[in-house]
C-alpha cells in the first residue's frame, strides 16, 4: 500500500504540491490525471525518493521514502517521463545493465518481462537510440520491471506515443497488474483514465477528486448536453454569452453544455440557439466523462 500524507513540496517560492493525501491499495492500477503542471511528476519523484518533501510523509509498502529510501530503491520500478535509458547501448545491453545493478539477471525475471520484451526482442542488438517511440517505451517498461518491483511508477508513459502503441501499452500494464504489482501511472489524456482502477484528478498541485472512473463520471452533478450546429465557432460564442448556460467547452465535434437552472431542458436551449440564427441545431443529453468532471471541478476551483 502506498500512503501519502499531507505532502507539500516547494521549489523556492513555487509551490508544486499542496497538502496531498492519497492511499493506493495493493495491486491497484492507479492513475494520476491532470494537465501539465498539475504536480504529477513531482508527486512521482517524491514516491521514488528522488525528492524530499517539505512537509508530510509517504510510505511505500510501509517503507518511509526519506528514512528507508535505500530499501525502496530495491523494490520500486520507475519509468521517468523522459526516455532515460542509454541510447548508445543496445536493447539487450540496457536490460542486462539494469538487471545487474539490481543484483539480478534477465533470466531470473524473464517471466515477468516476457510479454513486453518479446515484442522488442527482434531488435535486441539495435541501439536504444534508434528505436521508435513505442518501442522505446516498451524497453523502458522492461527495464523498470526487470528487478521484479513491488510497485511500478510510470510518469506519462504514453505521452508522444502513437494511438496503437498506447493501446498496446495499456494492455501490457493490465497484464503486469495481474502479477500483483501495484502500478501508479500518470497521464494527461483523460480517455486513459477509464483504464485505471481508481484515479486522482490533479490540478495546480492539488488533488481535486479520488475515486473509480465510473464513480467519478456518475458523480457529475448536473445534466450534460451535447450541442452541435452548422457554425461551431459562433455557437461557442453564443453559448458562452447565454445567461442560462453554466459551462461550455468543446468536446470533439460537440459542445458540452451545462445549464444554470437544474430544471432547464433541451427544448429551451435549442429554441434559444435558433433565435440566435443557428441552423441544424442538434441538442441531446449525454453522459459525463472524466474530462467533463475535470472541467467542472476546475471551474469550481477557479470560482
Amino acid at each position: 500500500m502506498i500512503s501519502i500524507q499531507n505532502i507539500s513540496k516547494n521549489f523556492g517560492d513555487v509551490s508544486a504540491l499542496r497538502d496531498i493525501n492519497l492511499e493506493i491499495k495493493d495491486g491497484e492500477l492507479f492513475g494520476l490525471i491532470g494537465p501539465d503542471g498539475a504536480g504529477k511528476s513531482t508527486l512521482m519523484r517524491l514516491m521514488t525518493t528522488l525528492y524530499v518533501p517539505n512537509q508530510g510523509q509517504i510510505t511505500m509498502n510501509s517503507r518511509h521514502t526519506v528514512k528507508d529510501y535505500k530499501a525502496i530503491r530495491n523494490h520500486v520500478g520507475y519509468m521517468p517521463g523522459k526516455f532515460s535509458l542509454y541510447q548508445d547501448l543496445s536493447v539487450e545491453e540496457n536490460l542486462a545493465f539494469y538487471a545487474s545493478v539490481f543484483g539480478s539477471t534477465i533470466e531470473d525475471n524473464y517471466d515477468l518481462v516476457k510479454d513486453v520484451y518479446e515484442q522488442i526482442a527482434p531488435f535486441k542488438k539495435r541501439l536504444a537510440g534508434r528505436l521508435s517511440g513505442g518501442m522505446k517505451q516498451k524497453l523502458a517498461l522492461s527495464c523498470a520491471l526487470i528487478h521484479r518491483p513491488e510497485i511500478l511508477i510510470l510518469d506519462e508513459p504514453t505521452t508522444g506515443v502513437d494511438a496503437v502503441s498506447r493501446k498496446e501499452f495499456w494492455e501490457m500494464l493490465k497484464k503486469v497488474q495481474k502479477t500483483g504489482i501495484t502500478i501508479v501511472v500518470s497521464t494527461p489524456y483523460m480517455d486513459e483514465a477509464s483504464l485505471c482502477d481508481r484515479v486522482a484528478l490533479m490540478q495546480k498541485g492539488e488533488v481535486l477528486k479520488v475515486d473509480t472512473p465510473e464513480a467519478i463520471m456518475k458523480s457529475f452533478p448536473k445534466k450534460l448536453f451535447a450541442v452541435k450546429s452548422e457554425n461551431q465557432y459562433a455557437l461557442l460564442n453564443d453559448l458562452k454569452s447565454n445567461e442560462h448556460v453554466y459551462s461550455v467547452f468543446t468536446f470533439g465535434q460537440y459542445m458540452h453544455v451545462t445549464l444554470v437552472d437544474e430544471n432547464g431542458n433541451m427544448e429551451d436551449l435549442s429554441a434559444s440557439l435558433q433565435e440566435n440564427g443557428h441552423e441544424e441545431v442538434e441538442v441531446k443529453q449525454t453522459d459525463a466523462g472524466i474530462e467533463d468532471m475535470f472541467m467542472y471541478l476546475m471551474n469550481l476551483e477557479n470560482e
Binding site: V76, Y86, V101
Partner: peptide
Amino acid sequence: GTIEQINVTP
C-alpha cells in the same frame, strides 16, 4: 536524463 533512472536504483 539517465541519471534519474540510475538514482532510483540501489
